[in-house]
Write a protein that binds this DNA or RNA. Structure first.
Length: 464
RNA sequence: GGCCCCGUCGUCUAGUGGCCUAGGACGCAGCCCUCUCAAGGCUGAGAUCGCGGGUUCGAAUCCCGCCGGGGCUACCA
């Protein structure tokens, strides 16, 4: 999707380092990247770390790692610098203080000395009287004397706030319903609804693309920008939320599956993840489901994004991931599998690749399929009939010169025919002897992946 | 409670007044293929389009009301 406008497109994501990297962050990043690339724009990463209590430095690193894993690259950020740095809000405190001071000087903001307890009482009373809560403005008209701890509140002027949302169209909010909100906390740090618009303006952000939970915040932020005389972003895009299977918002606390690194650890392919995320809340208008990032950049448009939240469906992700795995060539699959199969050398993994390909939905599943290669299964209890057939197979197998699937297959088929039964009668007991499992790739592959002597030893052992 | 967003198969969705006896995908079931498991092919079950009123010759599509879900309502972001 491309928009034509004079100023170059600049977008940003602004995650908070308050926990593991979240699926929602990946989703928001994806849409920002799609829009930026389609418009030859700039994509910036800003760290919104104004919550002193919850921020942790390692969480910032987690965000970088997760986004890099997905193949997203930012043009500006704390680690890369850029013309509008610093890109960490904790390093931009002077900017917010100056802006707040100006707002106070111009009577667009004021100091508030109310204690959290007093505020809480106000809120509870409003609730008891079934009245919508807005701050009483006590400190605007009659501040209590002799107090030193204060916050700074924005003086909401009232009136309508309008803006363009690329997903939902023209939005209008009535700011008469807003209370005077806090812009500087008592610890001197700015609140989100203050720091975010100040930075968006300072960083010349042209399009704000973020999750739907920010839709009600937008008019507050616009009020701040207007009071400061800054330039507003041209447009916003509020993307549908990713919902948990129970229909609620995916939260870090309640839903460990919202953790991005989990998907890397389980062996999902990043491009499959991106593909699935794109389909959650957006559809191309065709029946196509598999898209590369470049194809998404070309196809994506905000007018085809859903307005309601979408539940995260692991089964569908699994299917897409399987599609991507099947499409990989053997070398690529081998390289990616290496980290999941530390017990095996690359040559072995590559030999197994063709047989593995149609049997995995995630790279992590390779382990179950191949662990017989480095573990020693218990010999199975075979019936006398099974033993007979396995014995015949063992004799035939011992003659095989080149221990490869094709020769193994050739030598086994006469044994099957001689048994007068179907292949399974011969192959299943061999499978059990060699892998300890009832499920494996075709028996010729299964045998060939093992060194001949090891395979023969397991077979022989089972018929003793 | 207030403000905002949303409401089509279990899930993600197509659908913008007649092409809809509502299409696709995942999942599910069955069959085929087959040495097991997958993959692949075919078939099927599954949505009175949240409910009730309108408007119209005709509504999933337009209007109103209700109900339901979600988000925000913090000195979190």
């Amino acid at each position: 999707m491309a928009v034509s406008d004079t100023s170059p497109v600049r977008v940003r994501i602004a995650p908070s380092p308050t926990g593991f990297a979240h699926l929602g962050t990946a989703s928001t990043t994806l849409y920002n990247v799609l829009f930026a690339r389609a418009n030859a724009g700039t994509f910036a990463l800003r760290i919104d770390d104004t919550d002193v209590e919850r921020n942790r430095e390692e969480y910032e690193r987690l965000i970088y790692e997760a986004l890099q894993w997905l193949g997203f690259e930012w043009d500006e950020g704390p680690d890369k610098g850029g013309p509008y740095g610093p890109y960490r809000q904790s390093e931009r405190l002077d900017l917010y203080r100056e802006a707040a001071a100006r707002l106070i000087a111009e009577s667009n903001a004021y100091r508030c000395f109310c204690t959290p307890e007093e505020l809480d009482a106000e809120r509870k009373q409003a609730l008891a009287e079934h009245r919508p809560y807005v701050y009483s403005r006590r400190c605007l008209t009659n501040p209590p004397a002799g107090r030193t701890v204060f916050t700074v509140r924005f003086h909401v002027p009232g009136g309508e706030v309008k803006f363009t949302d690329m997903v939902r169209g023209e939005m209008t909010f009535d700011s008469d319903l807003f209370g005077d909100f806090i812009i500087i906390k008592s610890d001197g740090y700015p609140t989100y609804n203050f720091a975010s618009p100040v930075d968006d303006a300072a960083m010349h952000i042209t399009h704000v693309i973020r999750g739907e939970e920010h839709l009600p915040n937008t008019p507050y932020q616009l009020l701040v920008i207007d009071a400061l005389g800054f330039m507003r972003p041209q447009a916003f895009a509020h993307m549908p939320l990713i919902l948990a299977p129970d229909g609620g918002k995916l939260s870090k606390r309640k839903h460990p599956e919202a953790n991005l690194v989990l998907y890397r650890e389980q062996g999902y392919l990043p491009e499959a993840m991106v593909n699935y995320l794109a389909l959650l809340g957006w559809n191309p208008g065709t029946e196509r489901e598999i898209f590369t990032l470049d194809e998404l950049i070309a196809e994506f448009s905000f007018d085809r994004v859903q307005h309601g939240g979408a539940r995260f469906d692991r089964k569908k992700l699994d299917w897409i991931d399987g599609e991507y795995i099947r499409a990989l060539d053997d070398d690529d699959l081998t390289t990616r599998l290496a980290a999941f199969l530390p017990e095996l050398d690359e040559a072995t993994i590559k030999r197994a690749a063709p047989a593995l390909k149609t049997r995995m939905r995630t790279l992590g599943e390779a382990k179950t399929l191949l662990e017989y290669l480095w573990t020693d299964p218990l010999p199975p209890e075979l019936s006398p009939e099974d033993r007979q057939r396995v014995k015949a197979a063992a004799v035939a197998l011992s003659l095989v010169q080149h221990w490869d699937p094709a020769p193994i297959h050739d030598v086994l088929m006469p044994v099957v025919e001689a048994s007068g039964l179907g292949p399974n009668a011969t192959f299943m007991p061999i499978r059990l002897a060699v892998t300890g499992k009832k499920i494996s790739p075709p028996i010729d592959y299964t045998l060939a992946l093992l060194p001949k002597d090891v395979a023969m030893a397991r077979i022989t052992r089972s018929i003793q």
